[in-house]
């Protein structure tokens, strides 16, 4: 007996869990995390194009301990993730050699992958608490993650 359901993740979490998802995506997509001191030096570059987007249905819980900002870079493209004033996760994509449309596409792709990583970690963490174990896992050519989970393993 079985059913199939389609689910849309809601990204709610403290900043460390979001930063971990961003770091995972950066590593898998060939981005580097930019150190904050370098960012300060390079922040004023008027020739760069800039687009902004946000992850829908996201809520970053306030963190009193640290800064709620992480920056990743690949070539001339830099993506700034930060908590917006309304608590949602905002992305600012900057680049010199790309058109605004290209920057927007890159931003959407990276945002999607962050949601994917967040959903993966949340689901696996919660299922393990409920005595489920991953018995098979792989990434398809289309970058989807396929996981088989079974209880009592």
């Amino acid at each position: 007996m079985s059913s199939v359901c389609v689910l849309t993740p809601i990204v709610i979490g403290a900043w460390p869990s979001i930063a971990a998802a961003v770091a995972g995506v950066a590593a898998s997509m060939g981005f580097n995390i930019v150190a904050p001191e370098r960012l300060e030096l390079e922040s004023q570059q008027p020739t760069r194009r800039k687009v902004q987007t946000e992850i829908p249905e996201s809520e970053i819980l306030e963190d009193e301990m640290g800064s709620e900002r992480i920056v990743i870079r690949q070539g001339d493209v830099e993506i700034v993730f930060e908590r917006d004033h309304d608590g949602s996760l905002k992305l600012c994509v900057l680049g010199e050699k790309h058109s605004k449309a290209e920057l927007e596409r890159i931003g959407q792709e990276v945002a999607g992958r962050v949601v994917q990583q967040f959903a993966y970690h949340k689901l696996i963490t919660e299922l393990k608490k409920r005595n489920y174990a991953v018995i098979d896992e792989h990434v398809e050519k289309d970058q989807s993650i396929q996981i088989r989970v079974r209880q009592g393993y």
Partner: peptide
């Protein structure tokens, strides 16, 4: 048999989950 989930998370984060191995 034990409950089993076959999960696909696409690159935009959308999940498709097949639940099997249990009663209705």
């Amino acid at each position: 048999s034990a409950p089993q989930f076959d999960i696909r998370i696409d690159k935009a984060g959308k999940l498709t989950v097949k639940v099997s191995g249990v009663s209705g």
